[in-house]
């Protein structure tokens, strides 16, 4: 087990190294200069570019970059928040994103699981059909379409909730109210995914032989379902719920833009558009780190949740 974890961590480090290298070369070979003020004299422009070593050949720049990166010095932002450390910017944006995403997770997981259980228990009856229609709608309609619809009808036409996220620093009632719509828009896709999985797994579990055994030994349908079927169908569900826990760290780029949430997603979009190279690399690195970590934890969790599954290369 330990050997497996170490192997995976080394592989992850290599992947991350490849990602930052690719990002570095791609971002630095993009056309356009960070100094785009046409009124600036040429020598000032050169001085600015010299300061950030932008005029050195790429391999030299790469050397500087790697040296900084390996000593956990991610550099400072150039344009989005000039001269502020990238690390600090991300640290400041993270709580905002976290707040919205945690509420979304609190809504997504229970609702998804309950709907999935209802659909499986009432298979091929009215409730199941309604839930199926809802699932296919939620999966198909993109989140930004939902966001736009919610914003226009719920917030603007009916005035039930604010259009944009309130700027209150703490979690006040106004802030909570303004978070309802973004949270809804973020949650629909997740709810549909969990419901779909839960239904499929539970349907399979209900038809399995251990359910027959459970009923033969005297359990009622409810007892057998709660104690055996539902518990067993949670195992594959970890596969999609654990990444959801990790993804609360990274903001949704589109939803944050639509509702004016000044979180990580919006930060990465503005850094891409402003050609703020250190910030772009740092945010992309952060996103890669989250998704790689979640894959690792999912793989490790199999052995813990279900001891029947052995991890590692031993045969």
């Amino acid at each position: 087990m330990l050997r497996y974890i170490v192997q995976r961590l080394i592989a992850m480090a290599i992947t991350l190294f490849i990602i930052i290298s690719i990002s570095f070369f791609i971002i630095h070979s993009m056309p356009g200069s960070i100094v785009d003020d046409p009124m600036l004299p040429e020598d000032v422009k050169l001085a600015i570019e010299d300061k950030y070593h932008l005029n050195d050949p790429l391999p030299v720049q790469y050397g500087y970059f790697l040296k900084d990166f390996l000593s956990f010095n991610f550099g400072t932002s150039i344009k989005v928040q000039p001269r502020v450390s990238v690390f600090d910017i991300i640290k400041a944006k993270l709580p905002i994103t976290l707040q919205v995403n945690i509420f979304s997770l609190i809504l997504t997981v229970p609702v998804g699981i309950i709907l999935g259980i209802v659909a499986a228990l009432k298979k091929n009856r009215a409730a199941d059909h309604i839930i199926s229609i809802m699932v296919i709608l939620f999966i198909s309609v993109p989140s930004f379409v939902f966001a736009a619809l919610l914003q226009y009808f719920v917030a603007f036409k009916w005035g039930l909730a604010p259009i944009l996220l309130s700027t209150d620093a703490t979690l006040t009632w106004t802030k909570f109210k303004s978070m309802i719509l973004p949270v809804l828009a973020l949650s629909f896709g997740g709810i549909a995914t969990i419901t779909r999985y839960m239904r499929a797994e539970l349907c399979e579990a209900l038809n399995s032989e251990y359910m027959l055994l459970a009923k033969t030994k005297g359990l009622s349908q409810v007892q057998a379902t709660v104690r055996h079927a539902i518990r067993n169908s949670f195992i594959p569900l970890a596969n999609i719920i654990i990444p959801m826990f990790f993804s609360i760290l990274g903001g949704s780029m589109v939803i944050e833009n639509i509702f004016g949430i000044p979180g990580l997603g919006q930060l990465s979009v503005s850094s891409i558009n402003a050609l703020d190279h250190p910030l772009t690399i740092a945010t992309l690195f952060f996103y890669s780190l989250i998704s790689l970590l979640s894959i690792l934890v999912v793989d490790l969790s199999y052995g813990i949740i279900d001891p029947r599954i052995r991890i590692g290369g031993r045969k």
């Binding site: 992850m12 992947t15 992309l284 790689l292």
Partner: peptide
């Protein structure tokens, strides 16, 4: 496949 596809 290890690289997050959206980032790529």
């Amino acid at each position: 496949g290890g690289i997050p596809s959206l980032v790529l």
